[in-house]
Design a protein around this nucleic acid. Structure first.
Length: 502
DNA sequence: TGAAATGTTGGGGCG
DNA sequence: ACGCCCCAACATTTC
């Protein structure tokens, strides 16, 4: 908002370029809108140097997987393009982060460094150390919250401990002040006299050499503009690119549509959120504002159901923050002695979508082809791996980590510990999904299953989800990795063994 | 954000 | 008319 009374000094920009610059260190906040660190920097009337540093070895046991790297490549490209529209640009560096940042500070004469926080244990440790070091060297260092609606320490039980069950956590979040509205996108990003050297994006070698990513381009548009367009598709009854106008926006019927994998009833915002191409606060307010603009109880209800899912993200992040060992170890210690099976062949069958259970194989193939899987189906495939196949949830987490474009340590850990029955607010171990029943329930017409398992196109009804019961089963589809009843009983026996073993 | 086993109830067929 | 059985439908409990 320009102040018409403020005199315009023709040399103002020149004066700004001569002041010591601020480094804005981009990490998982690859956007210009509602970006607190960038917003802060833009208010300092000093040159801004946007930086991204590729440092996978600083991510502990969890360097970005192949699908994440694909996304990152395109997202960095998009960020650089939108910075260039504002006469700025993204400077790319290679880790170690501390040395690279110090070099840049010395080279450019920058005196201040800002970033938005991350919550992975290895990153917290690195950032903490780095902040301390730079401060002791006389630099100003600031960090901001850009990724969460409510940060880990801001929502605790009455006794000051972290919540371990979602519903009370959710209630406590609703009792807080509502998340602030999104910050304005900086109109100007003052450039320094000269930008420091940048590496070429291709030197990060983020894209695959084998072209398994072909279909990714049909399903995803990484980057801030892609994120905003996707949100609009979800919130609008007439998305800009829809061939046919929907009757109602997806979010209005969210509760019902989000469990139907054959339709795009979910928001598909997860990868955009993971890379911070859009902020959860922006989504929160956009959904609720759209609902109140439409009026009536259905839109409000839909928007609340959807924003509730955003709070699951916060829940996952605060769990990871307070229980940093959980990506590798079960939250409930009893499960450390669970008798998992080591079975590379069966693991491979699961990974490639050859378990012989159609709804499972459809999901695993959707994941492999598009880098994403519908959430309902994630639960079904997870249950089969962990319970019927008796393969550890860590194996499932590792595969998802490598193949999901939305791979996120907090969400992935929560999801797998939930399905494994060993985490916070977890499904009891004996809650074993029946892969036939789940198919019949959530993919009634079999549309989703047949889309990804075309060899089953001749089947319908119950036999679609149990092809071995067909009069003449398809010859090009595998037999089940384990018979359902036997698998269920074996899982229950393993669970009993664990309980006895302590 | 299950499923299976077990228990209960009530209608209808049938001797 | 009545008791008996069967079984679907629903509820509860058990894993």
């Amino acid at each position: 908002m320009g102040n018409p009374l403020r005199p315009i000094y023709p040399k103002r920009d020149r004066a700004v370029t001569e002041l010591p610059p601020i480094l804005v260190w981009f990490r998982q906040d690859l956007r210009l809108a509602d970006n607190p660190a960038l917003h802060y920097a833009s208010q300092q009337k000093r040159p801004i140097i946007p930086v991204y540093i590729w440092a996978p070895e600083e991510e502990g046991d969890w360097p970005p997987g192949a699908a994440s790297r694909w996304w990152l490549h395109h997202s960095l490209n998009a960020l650089d393009a939108s910075l260039r529209k504002k006469k700025s640009r993204l400077i790319l560096g290679r880790g170690p982060s501390e040395e690279t940042l110090r070099d840049l500070m010395e080279q450019t004469g920058a005196t201040e460094l800002v970033w938005n926080r991350r919550y992975e244990p290895a990153i917290i440790a690195r950032d903490k150390q780095l902040k301390q070091t730079f401060k002791s060297e006389g630099f100003a260092v600031r960090s901001f919250n850009s990724a969460l609606l409510f940060e880990p320490d801001s929502v605790l039980t009455k006794t000051g401990t972290p919540y371990q069950v979602f519903t009370p956590f959710y209630r406590a979040c609703l009792a807080q002040d509502e998340p602030a509205g999104p910050l304005r996108t900086p109109t100007k990003l003052p450039a320094p006299e000269t930008f420091p050297e940048s590496l070429d994006l291709d030197s990060f070698e983020l894209l695959p050499t084998i072209p398994w990513d072909k279909a990714f381009y049909d399903h995803w548009t990484p980057g801030e503009a892609g994120a905003e367009a996707q949100l609009e598709r979800f919130l609008s009854a007439d998305p800009p690119d829809a061939p046919n106008a929907h009757h109602r926006a997806n979010f209005i019927d969210y509760q019902e549509r989000r469990n139907t994998p054959s339709v795009t009833g979910t928001s598909r915002m997860s990868p955009h959120l993971h890379f911070g191409e859009i902020s959860p606060r922006a989504i929160w307010h956009a959904a609720l504002e759209r609902a109140s603009a439409l009026g009536g109880s259905d839109p409000i209800h839909g928007a609340k159901q959807y924003t509730r899912q955003l709070v699951w993200r916060d829940f996952a992040h605060q769990l990871l923050f307070h229980f940093p060992h959980t990506p590798n170890q079960p939250l409930r210690p009893a499960f450390e002695h669970f008798p998992w099976r080591d079975d590379p062949k069966q693991l491979a069958a699961w990974q490639r979508g050859n378990t012989g259970y159609p709804i499972v194989d459809a999901g695993m193939r959707e994941l492999w082809t598009t880098g994403w899987m519908h959430n309902r189906v994630r639960m079904i495939v997870g249950s089969l791996l962990v319970k019927h196949q008796l393969i550890s949830w860590q194996e499932g987490a590792a595969w998802f980590w490598d193949t999901l474009v939305d791979a996120d340590l907090a969400n992935n850990t929560l999801g797998w510990q939930w399905i494994g029955g060993c985490g916070a607010d977890a499904a009891p171990y004996f809650r074993i999904f029946n892969p036939m029943t789940q198919g019949e329930k959530f993919d009634k017409a079999g549309e989703y299953t047949k889309r990804w398992c075309p060899e089953l196109s001749g089947l319908s009804g119950k036999t679609l989800f149990a092809p071995w019961t067909a009069p003449s089963p398809p010859t090009d589809y595998p037999a089940p990795v384990i018979e359902h009843k036997a698998g269920r009983e074996r899982a229950l026996a393993a669970f009993a063994e664990m309980k006895d073993g302590q």
